[in-house]
Each structure stands twice: as structure tokens, then as C-alpha cells.
């Protein structure tokens, strides 16, 4: 129960912050831009013409539900990669503010357990990530439905993959904040995992660039532990397609990301509960 109270307070405070408001404002502006700039001509279930900012899109006459797949795929990639990146940047200060000197002492003296405070903070930020992703996905879906009269659940799956992929990123950021109480280092850790997770999606290619030896074994070992963000992103994008080429099995990737998240959160909890403030 206390976890939810903390989480909702984190959400309330985050929505009072300029940076989070700016992010949601930017998403909303993007949606408004799309609403006015995208013009789709649908005739008898087929996409006859498309214009973006008044410029003709290179489209042949194809069934509208097929054409829309590619828009949703692009949306999935944007939400996944841009969302993860800006999610890490924007959320970096939330936990650091809660753990700031003079604030954390007050919070720890309240009738709340340290684990509840930590998990509540984590869930609050994840909820904000879910809200931002939902705004982008539902907004775009509504616009496309209004323009083309087609709606599919595929964007929801893509959004789910984006939020799921943010889970290990923010878990590591939270661990970093608990250890060093620095928003800058937390953001650096989050972005480090983001890019590390992209590289870790292609261990054979990265390994081939390295010479045989201990350092290569260590790097390959580390990569095997990281979430595979490029592959998760591909899963998100493929969800929009009816018949994706070279589909990736989502199960092991999702399990790996969740296992990484759980391990990092457990470490953060262990550290936080034994730390003096």
C-alpha cells in the first residue's frame, strides 16, 4: 500500500517538474503536427495518396491496412529508441531529488520502509514512462484512425516493449542514484546501458572486432548479461507487420530484460536498506 502512495507522490511531483512537462508537451506538439501535416487519401479500402507537410509520399495504391503497418512500424521504432533515450535523460533527477540531503532524512523518518520508498519511486517513474508512451501511441493511433479509418492493436505491443525496455534502464539509474546520489551519473549509467544494450544485441559482430583473449571473453560475458535493446526494438517494430522478415523470438529477450531488472533492483534495495544518511 505504501509503495503505491510513494509511487503516486513521485508521479505528482514529476508532473510538477518542468522537464517532465516539457517532454509531454513535446509529444503533444508532435501529435498535433502529425494531425495537421499528415494527409491520407483512402479510396475503397486502399491508400490512394499520402502527403506529409504537403509533400507527396511515394506510395503506390495498396490496401490501407498494409500501408498503415509501415507507419505503425516507424512509430514503434520512434517510441522505442527516442522514448528510451529521452526517458533516461528526463527521469534522471527524480530519484536524486528524493535522496537529496535534507529530503531523504525526512522521508526515512516517515512511517514507511526503505524498500517501499525505493520500489515506490521505481514504480512511479515507470508509470510516468507508461503515460508518455501511451500518449504517443494512443495519440498517433487516434490520428491515423481519423485519417485512414484503420486501427490495430500492434502499437500497443510496441509501446509495451518500449516500457519493458525502460525497466532495466531505470533500475540501473536508481541503483546508481542510491550509490552516488547524482542525477548526472544516473543519466550517464542509463544511457550507458542503452548503448551497451544496443551493442549487446550483436555479440558475434562485436566479438569479431576484438582479438581473442581474456578481454574479449570479459566483454562477451558482460554483453551476455545486458538487455538486448536492438532486438527488443525489432520485436516492437515487427509487431506492426503482418508478416515480418526474420522475426525474433520475444520470450527470451523479455525474460532477460526482466531478470536484469530484478537483479539490479535487488542490489539497489540491498544497498539502500544498509546505507546511512
Amino acid at each position: 500500500m505504501n509503495v503505491l502512495v510513494v509511487a503516486m507522490d513521485v508521479v505528482r511531483e514529476a508532473f510538477a517538474r518542468k522537464m517532465i512537462l516539457a517532454l509531454f508537451g513535446a509529444v503533444t506538439l508532435g501529435l498535433l503536427g502529425l494531425l495537421f501535416a499528415l494527409d491520407l487519401e483512402v479510396t475503397q479500402g486502399a491508400l490512394a495518396a499520402g502527403r506529409l507537410f504537403g509533400k507527396d509520399l511515394d506510395t503506390s495504391i495498396i490496401p490501407v491496412d498494409v500501408a498503415i503497418q509501415h507507419i505503425y512500424q516507424a512509430l514503434a521504432y520512434v517510441v522505442f529508441y527516442v522514448g528510451l533515450f529521452f526517458g533516461a535523460v528526463v527521469s534522471g533527477g527524480i530519484a536524486a531529488d528524493l535522496l537529496a540531503p535534507g529530503r531523504v532524512e525526512f522521508l526515512l523518518a516517515l512511517p514507511i520502509r526503505r524498500t517501499e520508498l525505493l520500489l515506490g519511486t521505481y514504480l512511479g517513474v515507470m508509470f510516468i514512462a507508461l503515460c508518455g508512451t501511451s500518449l504517443a501511441v494512443f495519440g498517433t493511433t487516434a490520428i491515423i484512425y481519423a485519417k485512414a479509418g484503420v486501427v490495430t492493436p500492434a502499437p500497443l505491443f510496441g509501446a509495451g516493449m518500449a516500457v519493458l525496455s525502460f525497466a532495466p534502464v531505470y533500475a540501473l539509474m536508481l541503483l546508481c542514484t542510491v550509490v552516488v546520489r547524482s542525477s548526472v551519473l544516473a543519466i550517464a549509467a542509463g544511457l550507458g546501458l542503452y548503448f551497451g544494450g544496443l551493442f549487446a544485441s550483436f555479440p558475434e559482430r562485436i566479438g569479431a572486432l576484438l582479438e581473442q583473449g581474456l578481454s574479449r571473453d570479459i566483454i562477451e560475458g558482460a554483453m551476455s548479461l545486458l538487455p538486448k535493446f536492438a532486438l527488443l526494438g525489432q520485436v516492437a517494430g515487427d509487431a506492426a507487420l503482418r508478416n515480418p522478415e526474420n522475426p525474433v523470438a520475444a520470450g527470451p529477450l523479455v525474460f532477460g530484460a526482466l531478470a536484469f531488472t530484478a537483479a539490479v533492483l535487488a542490489l539497489a534495495t540491498f544497498w539502500f536498506t544498509g546505507k546511512d544518511y
Partner: peptide, 17 residues
């Protein structure tokens, strides 16, 4: 803790609240 009130020496408040 539910029965304890505490004011720390240097209180930091949420600036946006």
C-alpha cells in the same frame, strides 16, 4: 514512526510543490 514527527536540520522540500 507513525507516532514520531521529525524536522531535519537542513530540510529540502520538493521545489515544484
Amino acid at each position: 514512526r507513525r507516532k514520531v514527527g521529525y524536522l531535519p536540520e537542513r530540510l529540502t522540500l520538493p521545489p515544484a510543490f
